[in-house]
Structure formats: structure tokens, C-alpha cells
Computed example of a mutant assay.
Amino acid sequence: MIAAGGTIGILGGGQLGRMLTMAAAQLGYRCHTFDPNADSGAADVCAEFTSAPWADRNALARFAEECDVVTYEFENVPLGAARTIPADKLFPSARALEIAQDRLHEKAFAEDQGGRPAPYAQVDSLDDLMTAVGRIGAPGILKTRRDGYDGKGQWRIDSEREAEALRLPSSSLIYEGFVRFAAEFSVILVRGQDGEVRFWDSAQNVHNDGILATSCLPPASVIAAQIPAARALAERIAAALGYVGVLSCEFFATEHGPVFNEMAPRVHNSGHWTIEGAVTSQFENHVRAICGLPLGDTALVLPNVQMTNLIGNDVNRANELLGTPGMHLHLYGKSEAREGRKMGHVTRVWA
């Protein structure tokens, strides 16, 4: 167990690191963030900040020495950098990071645990793509295997003709069959060092242009019926990885049951509502888990919750939104509002 006053290291300095730092401070911990970007949102609130390239092994070693435990706030931390951290200090493990960084490995891993992803195929050439479209059908989505997020690195293909005309990027790709779904939802769990697992209620998610727009509770009935099966898969994934911390899995609710979309080995945007909407937030429980503390209660505070992302110029409506009863504002300290950039979020909780 890491005693209060200890130092938590965070690889990555974005808004998730910022909110982890704030939760850790409430439990008496100091946070030391490592990020190549010196203009980091977490830098505003953490006790210490190291800005150095991910390839700087000496800087990473010094960082690890100064921390009692280390975690990461996004899954695109280079695997080599994560493996610089001693394995007994890093939670979740580098293995979880390795799987989540590659969509092909991620889907195969979920299948190994009994999950059902969309039909998919590895694509390394135009011939591979044409074979995949012929076998799986169109429409479908061509994605980069690595580094894509919030709709980036994705191309919708509606026909074989479109596929044939596409100029493929040089990166490794995956083709996924289009899933006809009624709704999207997340399963977010926390797993302690002793293997205890707790779940938050599952929010119904709505995306615009590949970016999460809202997460709402309670979810539609079609989601509620599929939560037990989705939770069972998420728990098997966590157990197979020996996971410690918050794990997020996204699903499509379909007429044939839940279809696994992707996992994130970290706190997740669709769980931001837990700060005000749950007894213990995803951020606090992540800190509790990696520090070896007892896990907190994940129950809802009130039955209705809606989290809305403030994307780009939406941030200009912040004061207007604050006028709504029960509304809570979180801004991420980003100076420039750009299209598609998450600037903050608001959460409303009501009876």
C-alpha cells in the first residue's frame, strides 16, 4: 500500500492526467507527470512535471525513481517508455497497454475471452483490402491499427469500387464490418490489487463525427438487457490481464447482443459523469486501486446523469450551461479551441 504523502507518477499530461491528479490530491498524494508536451493540462495542477521525449530513457528512469507507483492516462504511451518503468511499480501493466494499442490484437484478445467483435481482417495491401471487403462485405470501416482516436485514422468504405480507388496509408490497417446497432454503451470497472472488481452503471453514449458527445444515465432498455453479458466479458478481460485500475470497454447494443468495440486501459471520457454522479469517481477509484487502498462505492448519487463534452467552440457556452440547475463544469486548461478538440465537459445530476 502506498501511504498518503507518497508520489504517483502519471505518463501523459492531458485532461485525464489532470483529473487523476486532482483526485489523488484529495487522498493526500502528490503527482509527478511525465509528458513531452510542456504545455500540458496536468502541469497546472501536479506537484512535479517532467517534460522530455518518450525516448529519453534517462529522464524516464529518474522519473520512476521519484515515484512510488506509476500509471498512464492514455493508451498511446510508447510501449518502450512504459517498459522503462519497473513492472512492480506500473499499473495497469505494460501488457494491457500493448494489447490496447493495436486494434487487431485487441479484437483477437477479446475473442479469446469469449467476446464478439465486429467481423474484421488485417489489411497490409490493396489486395488484402479487396479480399476483406469481398469476405466481410460493405459498408465497412478501414482503420489504422495504431494511434487512432476520436474518429481519426478511419475511412468508411461503402462499396468495392470505393475500396479499389482508395490510396492506402503506409501504416498497418484493419478492416471492420459495419455494425448495425441500436445504441452504444460503456462498461467501466475498477479492479484492485487483490482482484476485487466493482462496476459503475453503464452510460448510453452518443458520438458525433467519431467523438463522444454525451453519456447519459439511465440507458435505454436495449442496453440494460445487455449489460450483464458485457460486464462478464470486461471482467474476464481484466482477470486475464491481471489488471489493476480502471478499465473501460465500449460496446454496441445489437439485436444479437453486445458487440465488443474497443477497450481503454485507463479512465475514460464516458466515465467523467462519475465525478459528481457516483459515490466514488473513476479517478478516485483508479488512485485507490493502484495505491492498494480499499475500493470505493460506485453507486449512483441520483438516478439521472448527463455528461456533455465541450468540443471546440462549445467551450464558449460554459457560462450559459452553468445556469442550469445541477450542472457542474470542468475545463481542461487548454488555451486554444480547435475543431474536434475536447476543451472540457459539463455534468448534470438530478432526481
Results as ranks from 00 to 15, higher is better:
2 I>Y: 12
4 A>H: 11
10 I>L: 15
11 L>H: 09
12 G>Y: 02
15 Q>R: 10
18 R>Y: 09
22 M>R: 09
23 A>W: 02
24 A>D: 05
25 A>D: 14
26 Q>P: 04
28 G>N: 03
28 G>R: 08
29 Y>V: 02
30 R>L: 12
30 R>I: 01
32 H>M: 11
32 H>Q: 13
34 F>S: 10
36 P>L: 02
39 D>L: 13
46 C>I: 05
46 C>T: 14
54 W>S: 01
58 N>H: 14
61 A>F: 02
65 E>S: 14
66 E>R: 12
69 V>Q: 02
70 V>G: 09
73 E>W: 01
75 E>A: 05
76 N>D: 10
76 N>C: 07
78 P>V: 02
78 P>L: 01
79 L>C: 11
79 L>P: 13
79 L>H: 06
87 A>Y: 11
91 F>W: 11
92 P>A: 10
95 R>I: 13
95 R>G: 08
99 I>L: 14
100 A>I: 06
100 A>M: 01
103 R>D: 05
104 L>G: 01
105 H>I: 04
106 E>K: 03
108 A>K: 15
110 A>C: 12
113 Q>T: 12
117 P>Q: 04
117 P>S: 14
120 Y>Q: 09
124 D>Q: 11
126 L>A: 13
127 D>Q: 11
129 L>N: 00
130 M>L: 15
132 A>W: 06
138 A>K: 00
139 P>K: 14
142 L>G: 00
142 L>P: 03
143 K>G: 00
145 R>E: 06
146 R>K: 14
148 G>L: 03
152 K>Q: 13
153 G>I: 00
157 I>Y: 01
165 A>H: 13
170 S>N: 08
171 S>Y: 09
172 S>D: 15
173 L>Y: 05
173 L>F: 01
175 Y>H: 11
175 Y>I: 07
183 A>H: 09
188 I>F: 06
191 R>G: 07
194 D>A: 15
197 V>I: 15
199 F>Y: 15
199 F>Q: 15
200 W>G: 05
201 D>L: 12
207 H>D: 07
210 G>F: 07
216 C>D: 13
217 L>N: 10
218 P>K: 02
218 P>G: 06
219 P>R: 03
220 A>Q: 08
221 S>H: 15
225 A>R: 14
228 P>H: 12
229 A>P: 00
231 R>N: 08
232 A>D: 11
235 E>H: 06
242 G>K: 04
243 Y>S: 03
248 S>K: 05
248 S>F: 13
249 C>H: 03
252 F>Y: 12
256 H>M: 12
257 G>S: 06
257 G>V: 07
259 V>I: 12
264 A>N: 07
266 R>G: 04
266 R>A: 09
271 G>R: 02
273 W>A: 03
274 T>Y: 03
275 I>Y: 02
276 E>Q: 15
278 A>I: 01
279 V>A: 14
281 S>L: 00
283 F>D: 00
283 F>P: 04
287 V>M: 07
289 A>D: 09
290 I>L: 10
299 A>Y: 08
300 L>N: 07
300 L>K: 13
304 N>T: 07
306 Q>R: 14
319 N>G: 13
319 N>A: 13
320 E>K: 05
321 L>N: 08
322 L>F: 10
322 L>M: 15
322 L>P: 08
323 G>H: 12
325 P>R: 05
326 G>I: 01
331 L>P: 05
334 K>M: 07
336 E>W: 04
338 R>W: 08
341 R>D: 07
344 G>F: 04
347 T>G: 06
348 R>E: 06
